[in-house]
Design a protein around this nucleic acid. Structure first.
Lengths: 238, 238
DNA sequence: CACGATGGTAAGTAAGCACTTACTTTGGTG
DNA sequence: CACCAAAGTAAGTGCTTACTTACCATCGTG
């Protein structure tokens, strides 16, 4: 039963009386951290109280029960703090129909976001596994919107003859797959980056390259001379 | 004497005295199912006992404690049942250097496997989040090996001039990302397949297409061979 | 056919859980 | 500077949990 023992005390002064709203926010932040580390069921209200430097009763003064505390987190995370709008992020490139800039911009933005807020990814995963409603909310309010706006852009560029005819949803799935899976590796499976250590800039660039152009040269399978074996220059470039 | 009604009894006769090994295996299977649904902390030994049709004491006769039961699952899943060797799966295509067959075969195999055993994916995710050692074991015994053997193949084909020069690990990351993320969508985020409903065969084909050729028509600095585009525009598979 | 090994159980126990009650500080203001 | 609302707590409550104990039932064999 591996359980990291350190209880991070996010509060500033050890034992000071706080204004109600302040303390509420602090408890909330502590709870975000703990829930993302151990999940909803794996986190006790006692732990949250201790890490916040107050008694358990204070937690229940601010939040009617554990479930409501969880919901408050979801509201806080999904609505207020992280109003990331991917469409606006690449609005310029969309107008110019600069395909490379669209995809690379999206990828880079997403990767940077995941890196700066790994807690959210864990929270979301726990939610999905535990069957909490954050999953559905996030799906409807974010994922679906991305599929729609990116799908529309792809359809438009297909009409322009710039893209091959293929269900845009498949392309979106493939591209988002590269990005999410890369972030998941960095945050969850391989945080030490033993398999692949690459900057977000480079990752975004190469993923876009692959999406747009593939990585086959189109040449048939025949042996070739080993002339220019240049290094890739992309490994371990952090 | 009337027997109490049993809950989900996965084993054959409703209430029969079983041989020790049989019962042990049955409890293990029930536990796999429950742990994958609710995680380690979210599953109680009482639930496991009830779903197995025995009393809680029997669970603890076969497994010293809950943790050991969990470890037994990991051994069972990782060692015995899951002897999938991706390298052997596409051995033929590897020899022939049939790139399309290599990647499409791997993708299809993985997607089919994930579909047939969604429990394992959930178990693995829970393990990663809860910090259990299954994660490391799976990483070392499977993930790392895939990166190595696929990376080697890519390097070889780069020497042949068939592939663009790019760190093979990035290509592997991108391709596995498409596959895993697609499976994760089907099993976890969007089991009703509202965003994308596509057969594994088709998914494998299109992901391979994107990886090898990209989906942009305006390929810079690549006049391309014979018939221009390959079998892309076939169909929208929705 | 008895008898011991093994499959199985009912009824615990102590610790831990979410949540409550009844009470004590403390700081800003009328 | 007294006062009271709000910040804070100690010590519960009843329920659930992982795990145990002490006992019963049934089968295969000598």
């Amino acid at each position: 039963m591996p359980r990291p023992e350190r209880l991070i005390d996010l509060a500033a002064p050890a034992s000071a009386r706080m204004a109600g709203d302040e303390r509420k926010l602090q408890i909330l932040r502590v709870a975000v951290s703990l829930f993302s580390q151990r999940g909803f069921r794996g986190t006790t209200t006692k732990e949250i109280a201790q890490a916040s430097g107050v008694s358990e009763a204070m937690v229940f003064r601010h939040f009617a029960n554990k479930e409501e505390l969880y919901n408050a987190i979801l509201d806080h995370k999904a609505c207020s703090g992280d109003a990331v709008d991917p469409e606006r992020m690449v609005a310029d490139a969309l107008k110019k129909k600069d395909d490379r800039a669209v995809f690379e911009g999206l990828a880079f933005g997403a990767l940077e976001h995941h890196e700066s807020d790994p807690e959210f990814q864990r929270l979301l995963l726990y939610s999905a596994l535990e069957g909490h409603e954050l999953t559905e909310m996030f799906f409807e309010k974010f994922v679906r919107r991305v599929y729609e706006f990116l799908g529309n852009y792809i359809r438009e560029r297909q009409r322009d003859g710039a893209f091959v005819k293929i269900d845009p949803a498949i392309v979106v799935r493939a591209f988002i797959g590269m990005i999410i899976h890369h972030s998941l590796n960095n945050n969850l499976w391989d945080p030490k980056r033993r398999l692949l250590n690459i900057s977000n800039k480079n990752a975004a660039k190469h993923f876009t390259d692959i999406l747009l152009n593939g990585f086959s040269t189109g040449r048939p399978a025949k042996p070739k001379s080993k002339t220019g074996r240049r290094s890739y220059g992309s490994r371990n470039t952090r």
